[in-house]
């Protein structure tokens, strides 16, 4: 009944890691798009929009991802809306990420000195030109390290989707550990795969940062 941990299991784990990467990528793109919208709503000069954005951020940041996954996958069907595991995972990971991205990016936008806005204005640039040519490029560079840091967190958070049936890296490790009773090498392998994914992200971040000449 108990079998050996074999190279075939490593292949199985690598295949499962594709889900980990796919889920994280989807959350990055989906969460990025929603996050931009929320970040803008958070800072536009229109109070009700600020309130809505803040309420959204507080709600999402204040509840665990596991609970959100649960609500989307098991809760929506109770209201008669059928969702597949992929839709539920993509949706809840995107929404979860969006709240964090929105706050990171709002902070980055606001950390660009008001003097930069003024310098642009004094040269006759329109509001949109000041935003797109002066403030955003600086904000993006400020935002890179915290954004990548959150992405690494997100890569690991995808393991929670095991609850709704995904066999991603952590769940695959658990299944193999249960069959081999060799958790140490199995989870050690999983840790190595996670490390490779996250290390690639951190290298990417360093590259982007190196090219930056952000405000001092």
């Amino acid at each position: 009944m108990i079998r050996e941990f074999s190279p075939a299991d490593v292949v199985y784990m690598l295949a499962a890691a594709r889900w980990t990467v796919a889920l994280a990528l989807f959350a990055m793109v989906g969460g990025g798009l929603i996050g931009m919208l929320v970040a803008v709503l958070r800072i536009v000069a229109f109070r009700p929009a600020n309130w809505v954005a803040r309420a959204y951020i507080n709600l999402i940041q204040g509840t665990p991802l596991l609970g959100q996954l649960f609500v989307f996958f098991f809760g929506l069907p109770l209201l008669g809306i059928q969702v597949g595991a992929w839709e539920a995972a993509a949706l809840s990971l995107s929404i979860y990420a969006s709240a964090f991205f929105a706050e990171i990016w709002r902070g980055s936008l606001q950390s660009v000195s008001p003097r930069q806005w003024e310098a642009g204005a004094a040269l006759g640039l329109t509001y949109v030109q000041r935003l797109t040519h002066v403030v955003l490029p600086q904000a993006v560079r400020i935002a890179v390290p915290p954004t990548v840091g959150f992405l690494m967190q997100l890569v690991k958070d995808t393991s929670l989707t095991a609850l709704i049936g995904f066999i991603e890296l952590t769940r695959a490790s658990q299944i193999i550990s249960a069959a081999t009773f060799a958790p140490l090498p199995v989870y050690g392998t999983a840790a190595a795969i996670y490390f490779v994914i996250c290390f690639s992200l951190s290298r990417l971040s360093q590259r982007l940062e190196k090219r930056s000449h952000a405000a001092r």
Binding site: E118, A119, A122, P137, Q138
Partner: peptide, 16 residues
């Protein structure tokens, strides 16, 4: 502002 140039105490060059 196209006709009026302004230079500030803190230079305010665009760092990027």
């Amino acid at each position: 502002r196209q006709r009026v140039g302004m230079v500030f105490q803190s230079y305010n060059l665009f760092p990027h």
